[in-house]
Design a protein around this nucleic acid. Sequence first.
RNA 1: GGCACCGUCGCCAAGUGGUAAGGCCCGGGACUGCAAAUCCCGUAUCCAUCGGUUCGAAUCCGAUCGGUGCCUCCA
Length: 480
Amino acid sequence: MRRTLSLFNTLTRRVEPVVPVLEGQVSFYTCGPTVYNYAHIGNLRTFLFQDLLKRTFRAGGYEVQHCMNITDVEDKIIRDSQGGLPETASNADRHAAMRALTERFTAVFLEDLQTLGIQPADHLPRATAYIPQMIQLVQDLEAKNLAYVRDGSVYYRISGLPAYGCLAHLDREGMQAGASVDADEYERDSVTDFVLWKAAKPGEPWWDSPWGPGRPGWHIECSAMGMELLGDRVDIHSGGVDLIFPHHENEIAQSDGCLGHQWVNHWVHGEFLMVEGQKMAKSAGNFFTLRELVEKGVDPVALRYAIQSNHYRKVLNFSFEGLRAAENSLKRIRAFRKRMEGEGQAGGGPWKAALAPEQRLAQARDHFWAALGDDLNTPEALAEIFTLISDLNAQDDHVALTREERDAVLAFLDEADAIFAAWPNEGDNLDAEVEALIEARRAAKAAKNWPEADRVRDALKALGIVLEDRKDGTTGWRRG
RNA sequence: GGCACCGUCGCCAAGUGGUAAGGCCCGGGACUGCAAAUCCCGUAUCCAUCGGUUCGAAUCCGAUCGGUGCCUCCA
């Protein structure tokens, strides 16, 4: 069955159902990284939120075509890649230097995604592979009188598009008041017009174009590649809130201006991340890349969990205390999963109320999906899982769930993990060494040799295996 | 100056008109050889503050205080 999912649309500032242009098929464009450095956890929060969104649609019964651009030509890339080259370097040399930098950090980026369990997009187009499409788009805009040339650069004529400002909810008066910073940098008709194609400057790599040597402006790649790979009507486009203006506003100008109709239906933006209550900044000493955290011993899955236990439209306060809480929360879910994989061990003790496991599960599943369907409310979806765990643990303590019931619960945990990617089925395979230790402990326990039993149990714990003695005298184990 | 957002238990975090979900941490009890896991009990008469609207507000309105973002490169 296909779930109805609603998301906050920046365009309308309301939560609206996502109704794909093609039934059951969601086209999804996300603004990817500029590959000149290591991504920090703030960047990764946004990519993780997009992963969550994509996984939710897939788990909800949709096919998703996901396109994420790799920006591999840009001011900072040029700055960082051209330093070692002589002034006389050829254009080919300049491109090669740029390419060396961007290929290195593209690989780094993809590794980081994998570390966090983020599924790569179906399309990962590099901007430099789509220069002809960008040139074509600029020419189309010229033909529609939405672009003009100045000294080898091409600019977008904002006055030609009355709707400009619709996404950021800015009016032109307001923009003109604040947009004076680099007013003298370009010879534009209006300070709010933005560049589509930049004339080459000395020391920069360039491409041939109808306007002479140059390179694409920042915004044009997303419009060109998005339209090329996902088509004329895109269901969802997302990025961080900082991209609303000017980047996405300008994408709308380019794409809608060229197409003559609305290109994207749903614009979705993820909030920022702060660290220990402060803005993350290199100068504040609280700037973290994923790699730095992993080197400190942070479990990337706990980081993933900590991030997704906050709503994507709320500022996230990253902290090491929060990371610890995330690790402990995960332990509870994983222990429950392990319990469901095994057989029931009903006993006695106080009991609030009996319940029907199948019904309780169905209810939890409904609530879980209702939460996700309501603007991707991941904190509430997770809460549903926890209340289910509490209820079923209590039930299982008194009336052991049947194999069928346990399997149904496991199926739901798998369904949820297809989205949250934090409590996978780890399998039952153990090293021979570990199995031998478990057997040794069993023997010591049978002989009531408690010091030896405890010694072996501690040894196993050091190997990441926690033993749990059951009521019937057998001993189970779990990872932790 | 313009446009928005946020302020709920020690920490994290749902709830946006009908009488405070969930997680972590903490205290007590049960179970256990001891543990672990689990269960039971207990932890906000109150949702930044002050007014107002309403039969009824954390949820609506106004003011105040505190924090954040965008208007310029940026996840």
